[in-house]
């Protein structure tokens, strides 16, 4: 019933509402399938699948959209693809078991969390050399960067801290203790606020990056869902800071938080074990990777509704959308 409804809604959406004139490309890393699924954002059809290396997880694009970076965790490397030819052009040194990374807003360098070694590796994507290895807490995972590129934030899952790293000196300037198993860190577009999700703690910490203090902890509750299943992971915030989306993992929902009141306004039912999120460049749509149902959900950001699900490869993990 629900899937039929969703399909109907999707069909309605496709026929009635105009989708962006410029088609973007959606790239989804499939952790178990060892592939990248490529989707056309206008037709929402899968247009191709490429091999991605062993256990692809973190995925990102260069600012001009020409290069696709994929953490191949079990190959201990970052694979780089030319988005025109969809061929792998080279690899970047990543340190062991790279999972998540973030690219400097200028397109260089790349900051990679190495879970095994308690370090963040900084890689120059042009010279393909390691610029620095920064010791952080136990099991570094989430990576966020301030819009001005001056601060990169790493979260460590067993230490339970957000480490604020100066991108010029590579020194840790401050640490903020958060709840158990912080997975993801995300700055607002104006840099005034940092959101950090704690998977096991079940909360999202709202941090004032200047003061290095938590101003609020957002909690979640869904009737009929065990509290333990509410495990926040991926976070995305609209450019105006008004809508905050948080993937709730095995709760199969994305929470929508009002960026002003910091209250949860609704829970959107998506696929199973929703993990990471990405906006379309115009931020009209949000795409979610659903690891246990092998699909992505498409959310209409303005209408705050799930409009479609698209089957991808096995255990989708990360998602990124081309700017062009």
């Amino acid at each position: 019933m629900r899937s039929r409804l969703t399909a109907l809604m999707a069909a309605t959406a496709l026929s009635v509402f105009a989708l962006p004139a410029v088609a973007n490309t959606i790239y989804v890393s499939n952790e178990k399938g060892n592939t990248i699924t490529i989707i056309d954002s206008e037709t929402l059809e899968v247009t191709g699948t490429i091999d991605a290396g062993a256990r692809p997880r973190g995925i990102t694009l260069s600012p001009d959209g020409s290069e696709l970076y994929v953490c191949a965790s079990d190959d201990d490397t970052v694979n780089v693809f030319d988005t025109k030819t969809l061929k792998r052009t080279h690899t970047l040194p990543s340190g062991p078991d790279p999972e998540l990374f973030i690219l400097h807003p200028s397109g260089n360098p790349l900051y990679i969390a190495n879970e095994d070694d308690n370090i963040v590796t900084v890689v120059d994507v042009k010279t393909r050399r390691v610029l620095a290895e920064i010791p952080v807490g136990v099991e570094p995972e989430g990576m966020g960067i301030s819009p001005d590129g001056k601060v990169v934030v790493n979260t460590s899952e067993t230490t339970n801290m957000a480490h604020f790293i100066n991108t010029e000196t590579y020194e840790i300037e401050q640490n903020v203790l958060v709840d158990q198993r912080p997975r993801y860190a995300h700055f607002t577009a104006d840099g005034s606020r940092l959101y950090v999700s704690s998977e096991i703690g079940g909360t999202v910490a709202v941090i004032d990056p200047k003061a290095g203090e938590i101003t609020k902890k957002i909690e979640f509750a869904v009737p009929g869902i065990l509290p333990e299943a509410l495990q926040p992971v991926g976070i995305k915030v609209t450019k105006d800071g008004k809508k905050v989306f948080v993937a709730l993992g095995p709760a199969n929902r994305v929470a929508l938080i009002n960026g002003e009141t910091l209250e949860v306004e609704k829970y959107l039912l998506v696929g199973q074990r929703v993990w990471q999120l990405a906006f379309s460049p115009d931020q009209k749509f949000l795409y979610t990777t659903n690891g246990n149902s092998n699909d992505i959900s498409v959310i209409d950001v303005e209408k705050e509704k799930v409009i479609k699900s698209i089957q991808v490869g096995e255990q989708p993990w990360g998602v990124v959308v081309s700017p062009n």
Binding site: N118, G137, V138, T159, M161, I172, N175
Partner: peptide
């Protein structure tokens, strides 16, 4: 080891 890795920040 794990406690010290965390502890050094504090």
């Amino acid at each position: 080891n794990d406690n010290n890795t965390t502890g050094r920040f504090l």
